[in-house]
Design a protein around this nucleic acid. Structure first.
Length: 276
DNA sequence: CATATGTCCTGAGAGC
DNA sequence: TGCTCTCAGGACATAT
């Protein structure tokens, strides 16, 4: 499931398209239900034709492809990915940008389950449409002080609060469990109960883990869905300490097995012995 | 307002 | 072996 490190890796991988021109936008009309588009696909095709790509940015867990006039917003959600002419298969291709004057012939948005979305907005509206009132500070930009301020105002479990994109942007289910284990914090505790030292530790491990996961180009889970822009697996899955490791010995304390619980309909993995 | 629940979708894997 | 069932979770809509 693409979270901050996976989306950042996608953005870096497709950066070679910057400077290219969009010759044509193709709707591959795959056999699955059409991907959710805003506005309609035909309107996206009309507006993007002939635009030059000026930049690629990550906003939370979205890939934003900027042109002079527009921002094409690709939201991978569970199984989406952005690829340089190298999708895992052809049947789940949801959008193709044909490029010219570019070393890359095509940019592809691919999504197996089709929960992802495609949006097109005016470039000057990026902040008002995507950020303001919708997303908290990015997990890699937030200061330790701001981190505590954003999270400490609720009694909901800290694990659930870390997933709230309005409070902090970029963390998903996998990295939330990993960073809480690294910081030795019980995921069930009320966010407001953590003290300043614990928030500092959590912030430190959050940065460390997200940056390391980016270096490893993200996590490809057992279903093998996530790939980088060149259709290669990530490598961070081999570094997971708790995620999807229920009933295995805790790699830190060896005193208990990793436990799986459900919080807000999502799996959480943690060690009952060394997370307090 | 804050918080909780339901929904979208496909394919992998479990169980019989 | 082949069928049916469950589950994975990001973001948003709707309910409480």
């Amino acid at each position: 499931m693409p979270e901050l490190p996976e989306v950042e890796t996608m953005c870096r991988g497709v950066r070679p398209i910057v400077g290219g021109w969009i010759q044509r936008v193709i709707d591959p009309k795959c056999r699955y239900r059409p991907v959710v588009c805003q506005p309609a696909m035909t309107e996206i095709q009309r507006r993007l034709r002939g635009q030059q790509i000026t930049g690629i940015t990550r906003i939370g867990k979205r890939v934003v492809i900027e042109t002079e006039k527009y921002a094409l917003v690709l939201q991978p959600k569970m199984t989406g990915l952005v690829s340089i002419d190298n999708p895992p298969d052809s049947e789940h291709v949801r959008l193709v940008l044909e490029l010219r004057d570019c070393t890359v012939p095509r940019l592809i948005f691919w999504d197996r389950r089709g929960l992802g979305t495609i949006g097109l907005i005016a470039r000057h509206a990026i902040a008002s449409e995507l950020i303001e009132g919708k997303l908290g500070p990015d997990a890699l930009a937030i200061s330790p002080k701001e981190f505590q301020q954003q999270l400490a105002t609720t009694r909901r479990p800290i694990k659930v609060v870390l997933l709230d994109q309005k409070r902090i942007a970029g963390i998903g289910n996998l990295y939330a469990s990993e960073m809480l284990h690294a910081a030795s914090i019980d995921p069930r505790r009320a966010a407001a109960e953590l003290d300043a030292t614990e928030f500092r530790e959590l912030h430190r491990h959050m940065r460390r883990i997200l940056l390391k996961a980016i270096r490893y180009e993200g996590s490809t889970l057992s279903d093998g869905t996530y790939r980088n822009a060149l259709n290669q697996s990530g490598n961070y899955q081999n570094e997971h300490r708790v995620y999807d490791r229920a009933d295995q010995r805790c790699p830190r304390c060896s005193q208990a097995n990793i436990t799986r619980i459900v919080q807000a309909q999502r799996s959480t993995f943690f060690c009952t012995h060394c997370q307090h």
